[in-house]
Design a protein around this nucleic acid. Structure first.
Length: 558
RNA sequence: GCGCCAGUAGCUCAGCUGGAUAGAGCAACGGACUUCUAAUCCGUAGGCCGGGGGUUCAAGUCCUCCCUGGCGCGCCA
């Protein structure tokens, strides 16, 4: 509807411009918004104020000229000029009734947009080292990335989800050593505290036990000294594979699936890192200093240059990441989105620099920074320390509070603001819990629909209803809210902000609950019942679409 | 020291690309179940949008300077 109104205003502006003999070019974008006060109508535009400067006339005079044009439009029941020069427009009520029918007619396809125009997007998220189970912070990243992908898909992008497995580098060696240490401990070759820097989580102890049960004690050969590297590879691979499998399972439980899993190690072994570096060399942005090879990222806005090949000849993580992102473009993606922990924000400029140096538009890359999650239980903080190996895993959270609540909670804040996750709150089955608020609205509507069906109530069938009896302010507000979903979805996609969906849903649920308490759908008047049935059917449909986008279930009973 | 992000009601946070009298939830107080689910609703109260200056028809939103908090500043990943 917003676009329709926007057209009317555009036409009016063109007409007035022509009448005044002004050039139609150089016009500002038509801004259409929802008025703060309902009394001001359905939509408002600030165009008259924007034109005032360019046309050298006062906003109210321009507004009044535009009003004369807009008054010719039959869909507009009322056009007024208010305040400093806002043009407020009220649509004919029948427009809203037909919009309701339109929304129902579109069914599950409602609010599928062509905003993305089929452009290909790669959303990379989680991408945790396979050195331990996912914790709650990863969970937030997973929820943000997954829902963002769903939103973009619905907004008309061709979306793939990808997990970049950071399976190269020192961390993996340490992982192998940690598992080996545990294994040797079982055989009595190690005792006391596991060395500093090693992974001390319980899971490695379990893994070592399974390994011993499976393979016996023979693995000791070539591994008895910490310095031995011959047999280390075996332990590293074993641990990484097992952990990665666990990660996949956790993510599946959480409702997240990836189209691609890409290994960092492969970039090194296949020589693709070298290819990327050669590319940079061709662009003349590499140089040697103090035995290392540097990328001149400061020429592209980074605060200093970065090493890509160390003096000892080992390529850095950054080098492989350049190769990885280079390949993303090569694979045909138009837009790259990386979801990272906010502590990596300092990494953004250098990667952007590399992307630009390789000839890509810097705007085609976006990093979504996700802030830390602090965990609490009934208000008291739950201590988490990765160092001590004490952390709450994603699996534990999902098991305790459920997938729906966990996902919803992760999306109740903007991703770059801290999130306090209260386990008891997420678990509570009462009105403190925002998840149930939305789901309950859905269940309530289903309950009404069930009642109608079960009792075979005689109300005008949907086919005969036109919505014409929906004249209460709260009924029209509900229709407008449903209509606004397309706007919300587009802005969530444009700004890469999935949390907008939970806020929209919360609002819609509130309106439904309020309406439910004041009005009865099943009514003595069959015509009214039929129209209201239409309304709640549409609401149910939008709630369902929204919950599905969030990856949260839509219960029919609660 | 430099950089990034944040600072909005007692608490946790929204505020769409700069729009009209700044919103919600929780907590507090007072009400509503013989009626489609009370996991709900209705009402009351609560504000120097961290502070100063600037840009303009218009600033919570943009610029600048300070204050406070978090994070980052490695030939780690």
């Amino acid at each position: 509807m917003k676009k329709r109104v926007s057209k009317y205003v555009e036409t009016a502006v063109a007409a007035v411009a022509a009448a005044r003999g002004l050039d139609g070019a150089d016009l500002p974008e038509i801004g259409i918004g929802l008025p703060r006060e309902k009394a001001f109508g359905d939509f408002s535009s600030n165009i008259a104020m924007q034109l005032a400067g360019r046309w050298k006339d006062n906003p109210r005079a321009i507004g009044s000229a535009l009003k004369d044009e807009l008054d010719k439009e039959s869909d507009l029941a009322l056009v007024t000029i208010d305040g400093p020069g806002f043009i407020n427009m009220t649509l004919d009520i029948s427009c809203w009734h037909s919009r309701l029918l339109d929304i129902i007619g579109q069914g599950a396809e409602f609010a599928t947009l062509d905003y993305g125009q089929g452009r290909r997007v790669l959303v990379e998220f989680v991408s945790a080292n396979p050195t331990g189970p996912l914790h709650i912070g990863h969970g937030r990243g997973a929820a943000v990335g997954d829902v963002l992908a769903r939103i973009l898909k619905r907004a008309g992008f061709a979306v793939d989800r990808e997990y970049y497995v950071n399976d190269a580098g020192n961390q993996m060696m340490v992982l192998g050593r940690s598992l080996r240490w545990r294994y040797l401990e079982l055989l009595g070759h190690r005792s006391g505290e596991i060395p500093d820097g090693y992974y001390r989580g319980e899971y490695l102890l379990e893994m070592a036990k399974e390994l011993r049960a499976d393979q016996g004690d023979d693995l000791i050969v070539g591994n008895v000294n910490e310095e031995d590297v011959v047999g280390l590879e075996f332990f590293t691979k074993l641990a990484a594979d097992a952990i990665l499998l666990g990660i996949r399972n956790d993510l599946n439980l959480f409702g997240v699936e990836f189209e691609h899993w890409t290994s960092e190690k492969d970039f090194f072994t296949s020589g693709r890192v070298d290819v990327a570096l050669a590319d940079l060399k061709k662009q003349d942005v590499l140089y040697e200093e103090e035995g290392a090879i540097w990328f001149a990222s400061s020429r592209f806005g980074d605060e200093k240059d970065r090493v890509v090949v160390r003096a000892n000849g080992v390529k850095t993580y950054f080098a492989s990441d350049i190769a990885y992102h280079r390949e993303k473009y090569e694979r045909g993606y138009d837009l790259l989105i990386d979801v990272w922990g906010a502590d990596h924000h300092g990494y953004v400029p250098r990667l952007k620099a590399a992307i630009e140096a390789l000839g890509n538009e810097p705007e085609s890359f976006a990093a979504i920074l996700v802030q830390l999650v602090s965990l609490s239980r009934s208000g008291t903080p739950v201590a988490m320390s990765t160092r001590a190996g004490e952390f709450i895993t994603l699996e534990e959270v999902v098991n305790e509070v459920g997938k729906d609540a966990a996902r919803y909670f992760f999306l109740t804040r903007r991703s770059d603001s801290h999130l306090e996750f209260d386990l008891e709150l997420a678990k509570s089955k009462n009105n403190d819990n925002p998840v149930y608020y939305a789901q309950y609205a859905h269940a309530r509507i289903c309950s009404i629909l069930r009642k109608i069906e079960e009792e075979g109530l005689e109300i005008d069938g949907t086919g005969n209803s036109t919505g014409a009896s929906l004249t209460l302010p709260e009924e029209l507000d509900l229709i407008k809210k449903l209509d606004d979903f397309t706007v919300v979805l587009e802005s969530a996609a444009r700004n890469l902000e999935p949390h907008r969906l939970t806020y929209f849903l919360d609002d819609l649920a509130a309106q439904l609950h309020s309406y439910y308490n004041r009005n009865r759908v099943i009514n003595e008047d069959g015509k009214v019942s039929g129209d209201r049935l239409l309304l709640i059917t549409a609401i149910r449909q939008v709630i369902n679409i929204c919950l599905t986008l969030l990856g949260v279930s839509s219960p029919e009973k609660m």
